[in-house]
Design a protein around this nucleic acid. Structure first.
Lengths: 216, 216
DNA sequence: GGTCGAATCAGGGGCTTCCCTCATGGCGCG
DNA sequence: CGCGCCATGAGGGAAGCCCCTGATTCGACC
């Protein structure tokens, strides 16, 4: 039985690589390079599986998550296999929570990728060995916890996000104030609220937090 | 005139993608997936151009830099086009200083990649538009400066590197002192020397510096 | 045996970070 | 209209960061 797939990745080179690496019993019926065209392509072509790059330009929720949100709630939704260069726990967990049925890194071999696609099409969940631990930790241990990871960012107001980004990049309070034309004390207030809302204790953790979700 | 190339990348998918994206007048005569086999392959096949992934496993100097060091000093050395997901200034500058004749990111299109290969083969230097600025800054402004970037790390003593790593991870001076069983003042001294030797001005820049070379 | 670098540490000064309280003006919502 | 939320900002304090000078010990090297 052949499996139909749509490939979503913003890098031409990688789309070609994925397409050429897949076995003959997997048919590529569409490709897309950003959030908007991915959604359109998936709806139009209705593939069995979507191979989805996690770091995708466009959209508002961080790329791939937008596609998942848009596509999975429809009837006859495809199974989604996430493909990423990142093996950061946050990325994996967020993507799986958003509905991906598998998550493999780009270091996967051609045959293994084909195998992963077939297994996802058949209903299995597929994870690279080193990622399985993250997923089990996040779901097994947490029990019924299904809180969305991304809502953290939504808790911040516009201004807070703006300040947060600059702080995460290493600017001092003074420099942030000069950039945004506000006083240093206002910057302090914003930073204080950001740290509190995100349950962080200092600017280093904030920088790390932002780096993990590629906000910087 | 056809151009001969060797492709070096640890990801099967990307090697396939690059190979398939190249025009017919570019002949792939070899491939490699780590530092050691890359050097062997390049020496054996003597291609005109090497397409080299910047983040390569193996070796001691951070992957691609090892390959460059090993290959470029020989007679009849190939031209090297660096290929990377990263557009970080440090990566670019280090790679170019090590002898690469071009640097493009994986977001490049197939035709553009082929064009870049041909131009590098012909002796041009090729950089993605957004990277050109970094290169010009690093070389134009610095004049005849050719200092190796990696020697920066060598300038640090054992103890300084140890302290540097912990600071880069966000530990406070006090915490570093407790971890290493030395006083906070000694930590301050070490950090001061590290910052001076690396020409950095605070611990945030240090964290960024360390992250760029994957020291953390 | 003297010199030099590495590692250890102290004191102090100036700035930055983080937290606390408090206050004002604007804007939307019931 | 009052209530809450947001953005703005002030004052003050404890802790952290960065820099400076200066000092001791120890081992390596000539």
């Amino acid at each position: 039985m052949t499996v139909s797939v749509v490939i979503v990745d913003d890098h031409d080179v990688i789309r070609v690589g994925v397409r050429e690496s897949l076995d003959d019993d997997i048919e590529v019926i569409g490709e897309a390079r950003d959030v908007e065209s991915a959604v359109a392509e998936i709806v139009a072509k209705a593939p069995q599986v979507v191979i989805l790059d996690v770091h995708l330009p466009g959209g508002t929720g961080g790329g791939a998550l937008d596609v998942l949100a848009e596509v999975l709630h429809r009837p006859g939704a495809p199974r989604v296999l996430a493909l990423s260069v990142s093996d950061a726990a946050e990325d994996v967990v967020a993507t799986v929570r958003a509905g991906a049925r598998g998550y493999v890194t780009k270091s996967i071999s051609g045959p293994d990728l084909s195998d992963a696609v077939r297994r996802v099409a058949g209903g299995d969940a597929v994870f690279s060995p080193r990622l399985a631990g993250f997923v089990l930790d996040a779901f097994g241990a947490a029990g019924g916890e299904v809180a969305a990871v991304d809502e953290d960012l939504d808790k911040l107001t516009e201004r807070e996000q703006e300040v947060m980004r600059l702080i995460a990049r290493g600017y001092t309070y003074r420099e942030v104030g000069e950039k945004l034309f506000i006083s240093i004390k206002t910057v302090e207030t914003h930073v204080g609220k950001v740290l509190h809302k995100l349950q962080l204790s200092n600017r280093h953790e904030l920088a790390h937090w932002a780096a993990q979700r590629r906000i910087v």
